[in-house]
Design a protein around this nucleic acid. Structure first.
Lengths: 359, 359
DNA sequence: TTGAAAGCGATACCAA
DNA sequence: TTGGTATCGCTTTCAA
């Protein structure tokens, strides 16, 4: 029923092969012929059959972008940047000339199983590239499964790129490039800053357990404490609470922390979203920010400053990293030396960050 | 090179047809045979070739979710809800039995051209369904183009669903269902509430011009004013500023509004994100919220309350709407009578919303 | 319940 | 520069 390539060929009085060549634009075709074919395409309102094309060419123009939580702007910003490097440009082309890709976002919800499912689904589609973003579960079994899956994808020509995600232990060669964030460094700078201001009783709301990012940020935090000679393991355990990357988690964690130490003067949160929840709980307890308690976050999302003007945070260049990852997935940009390029984190101190209250 | 269905068939000592039947699960197959096939699939680590399958079946398991701005949680929440109704369930199946779909999000960036490009790309992939979310440009030419494209998609079996997006004027039958938001009603309730509190000088930060949602929310706003006998066209024009759906726009709009009327006592914003920008500008001008100026938004995003505890806003059931849209796209839920079911908006008044200052 | 075989619609190699 | 055609891997009648 739908128009096929042969229909176009008939109308343009050329062979199917020629139409294909015009559409793909990788082959010399006489200008006049070309013209005639394009007119026929237009007149018939022809749309390429993707599956047929992919089957014959053994590759598709699908690019998958995996994110942990699509409702979190952290991922939205990276995905958006990556996606705009790929296809979706204004103006639809009839064939796949110009190489626009169908860049699509897949929401794993942070579930390892769904991550694997999506990878299989993308493998099934013979995706041209796969971009994995964000945190990863620190489970050896799952890590190995993902690495194996990525290796399989790579074998069949899929370009794999990691963005804001640690490099693979196994099958490091399955990946075109990895752009991990310097979470350790950022967290260390953040806590160091609080220590410099004089804070000593610092609560820590960590991300979900068993996540690499959680561990790295915590390691940075403790490194800063250690450097200031303040890394007491017991105290640290007492002042650390784990939870998911959402505001509710921050809210509850802050209440718990206040219960454990009503005199804390600062709270460092897993990220800005969590920090907002922390602030809500602190305010509810009658504490002012930052006069009574300083709060620190991570990521510097767009609304952070509006929500809590006094928030000290760490900025990750999400947009830049996403865009670069997009280009790497496309093959537009050369992979870095050794395939890994750590993305720096920058401490953001807003004017109102305060010293601890003398109480 | 990769394992094919025939390989599996050989190993299981059955015909390719049987393997296909097992994988698709739509045909009776003897339990023993079935068992043998599944074992072979597992042993060979077989992954279905999607393009080949789609070519033969004339349909794919791809479902496209179009959003205007993937970095905006407004869309993220809807997309996430829709996506979790579809595939991506835990546990990857070998074939496409169980009907899991590859639900993917496409970011149009609000560009009409990119919207069309994505629709073409999805058409090319023979997408099983397409879900369009959010606002639409109010340009007759583009509207017609989209409607025509959707009609074509529908013809070839793609299920089209609209979520938070007004129904189609042309080709209304191209759509399985439309779930438009009651933006007029919500906006009207919002402004009516401010009027009841005694506010009269109300600034209005509208969304981008030429957008249906922008118009509907504005119509609701003016309807409330009219009902209170306060709809002065000149004043309204003077106190209305347009801008995109981001905080920068809100920030600049608020500064402009203050310039035009330093004595305004309330500002209604296009949505919560814009409202945050408004708040930032007001605070910068030394005004307190809500003591000096009341601010109202729309959408009630998760961080709204944290950012501005005094924000009055309107809640749209984004999650529920998205989930329902997902089921409609899948065919799991019956379309509503007349194919259109308006989604109600609920006024959210937080305790601290204030009356206008007597100044 | 299973097998054989005819497409599905494009691509790309080999000729011309 | 163009045409003919085998091929890609799966689905789906039609028979057995």
């Amino acid at each position: 029923m739908p128009v096929t390539l042969s229909d176009v060929a008939n109308r343009a009085r050329v062979s199917p092969a020629t139409v294909s060549r015009v559409l793909n634009g990788n082959y010399p075709v006489a200008a006049a012929t070309r013209e005639r074919v394009l007119r026929a395409v237009d007149e018939l309102d022809y749309v390429l059959n993707g599956p047929a094309s992919s089957l014959a060419a053994a590759t598709s123009d699908l690019v998958g972008i995996l994110v942990n939580d699509i409702a979190d702007p952290f991922f939205g910003i990276m995905a958006s940047a990556a996606q705009s490097e790929m296809g979706g440009r204004d103006g639809a082309l009839p064939g796949r000339a110009g190489g626009e890709k169908l860049a699509v976002v897949c929401n794993t919800g942070g579930s390892p199983a769904r991550e694997l499912t999506y990878l299989t689904l993308l493998q099934r589609q013979r995706a041209a590239a796969v971009l994995l973003t964000g945190d990863a579960v620190e489970d050896p079994a799952h890590g190995a499964a993902v690495a194996a899956k990525l290796a399989r994808l790579a074998e069949t020509g899929t370009r794999v790129v990691l963005c804001g995600r640690p490099p693979l232990d196994a099958h490091p060669d399955a990946v075109v490039a990895a752009l991990p964030f310097d979470n350790r460094g950022g967290a260390r700078a953040l806590t160091a800053h609080l220590l410099e201001l004089g804070h000593r009783r610092i609560g820590y709301v960590a991300g979900p357990a068993e996540r690499i990012t959680t561990r790295h940020r915590m390691e940075g935090h403790r490194a800063a404490l250690a450097a200031a000679g303040a890394d007491d393991a017991r105290a640290h355990r007492r002042l650390t609470v784990h939870g998911p990357y959402d505001r509710r988690s921050g809210y509850e964690a802050a209440r718990e922390l206040l219960r454990r130490d009503p005199d804390l003067t600062a709270v460092v949160a897993a990220n800005d979203t969590v920090a907002l929840g922390v602030c809500a709980a602190l305010r509810e307890a009658g504490l002012r920010i930052p006069e009574d308690v300083s709060v620190a976050g991570f990521d510097d999302l767009p609304f952070s400053a509006d929500a809590v003007p006094a928030l000290t945070t760490v900025r990750l260049p999400l947009h830049e990293a996403g865009a670069r990852a997009g280009r790497l997935a496309l093959g537009t940009e050369e992979p870095p030396e050794g395939r890994v390029a750590e993305v720096a984190a920058e401490l953001v101190v807003r004017a109102s960050t305060g010293a601890p209250r003398s109480g």
